[in-house]
Design a binder for these strands. Sequence first.
DNA 1: GATTTTCCGTGATTGACTTTGATTATTTAT
DNA 2: ATAAATAATCAAAGTCAATCACGGAAAATC
Lengths: 249, 249
Amino acid sequence: MLTEERRNEIVSYIEEHKAVTVQELVDALDASAATIRRDLTALHDEHRILKVFGGATSISSKDVNTIEPSVAEKAHRNTAEKDLISEYAASLIQDNDFVYIDSGTTTLHLIDHITNKKAKYITNGVVHAKRLLERGLSTMIIGGRIKPVTEAVIGPDCVEALSKFHFTKSFMGTNGISVQAGFTTPDVDEALVKAEAIKHTYLSYILADHSKFGVVSSVTFSNLHSCCIITDEEPNKKYKDQTIIKAVC
Amino acid sequence: MLTEERRNEIVSYIEEHKAVTVQELVDALDASAATIRRDLTALHDEHRILKVFGGATSISSKDVNTIEPSVAEKAHRNTAEKDLISEYAASLIQDNDFVYIDSGTTTLHLIDHITNKKAKYITNGVVHAKRLLERGLSTMIIGGRIKPVTEAVIGPDCVEALSKFHFTKSFMGTNGISVQAGFTTPDVDEALVKAEAIKHTYLSYILADHSKFGVVSSVTFSNLHSCCIITDEEPNKKYKDQTIIKAVC
DNA sequence: GATTTTCCGTGATTGACTTTGATTATTTAT
DNA sequence: ATAAATAATCAAAGTCAATCACGGAAAATC
């Protein structure tokens, strides 16, 4: 059987059963455990399944029960990569830093790793603000209209409020990273907010797992060389020529 | 069974039952208590459930758990009275109203009774904003520093942001109501915010149960005749001479 | 055309790591 | 104070990634 063919079958099987053990797949597909494991690793890297200890689960199985996956509920996907990235990013925060934290699930993860209580934090995410407070950190929120799905503060009030601040560091999420289009996101309003935040920051960091490279979304909010990238895999050289990239792996 | 699979089932179970004991999960999933506890700890760290002594509860169980324990504790006192007051207050909201909702436990209760989706809502409470969004209402938040205990946005940024708006109605909490001192609250910063909000509102309502009458706290944020009072017991005549009071009982 | 070389996917082996349930010590609620 | 719940620790069982050798297919060489 062809490798690709087998892998497609694995994905189908997992989609159907929600969760599966390595042994189950060994029996079902008549391949060795080593091969199945390699397949699962590959499929996990392609974000087609979620590899877990003992087997794999379908990507969407976690929110099968929730009617509307909100920010907090989505945040636990792909945690291993995000943990690495967040941990490194959090270590960059120094005493007296004035830190902007962009809304989004990657940056939400970042907050769980922040330990520096001498820095000040400001965010446009409602959940982010709540979580920062839970960790006992000095927190501010940007005012403005709130976008329901992402629970992010956006709009002209938000952009104007941002223009008054001067952050020492900012941590942003992104949907796409490309040499031609720079950093991109699907929502115009969010893009405007991100752009304004970066404009008022001394050092901007983009937190992005490897799957974001080469992806282009609707709206550009920054060119590559304005932000450092923190990611989980050594990227193609053409990106490295454009900006500083830290790969944690 | 896979670890992740079991944990997903635990989340489902908790989502469905709102609360669950360790023993219940041991019986339901046929795993040892030690394992269940480890699962609960892990899920709590991922913010997928809320671990409590004896078991766990759902994170989105609207009654208790979206609120900080400190806030939640207070919110559970005098619920019956607050429900009456909130219900009446919510009925006052009309289409196209621009409504300011002050932070505090009484006003948090109010949100659960709001049904008008044609009005616009703005608040200085982080939890309030989240709750408004959950109810599918058009929501804005005021920006500024957040006071950790109450999760209320306060400070000069907040006051300045408020000064741009013109609300048709505002709903405020208070700690004390007295003929001499007017409406009072213990925190200077919160008082400034409340005062500014009232200043920019056409019709301000104070939600207060009967225990607040005759009480004086540290800082006055308004005199009596600037706001209507919504309360749960017919108050003394001396208050009625000063402002409009609606007693719901 | 036949032989060699290279490449890639596979399966087996192994030491390292993860999960689990039992036991014990500690913490918590009443 | 007491009883229950929890966290910490440990050994056993199970799982994983790395490594190696094998074998078939494609490419290079003769």
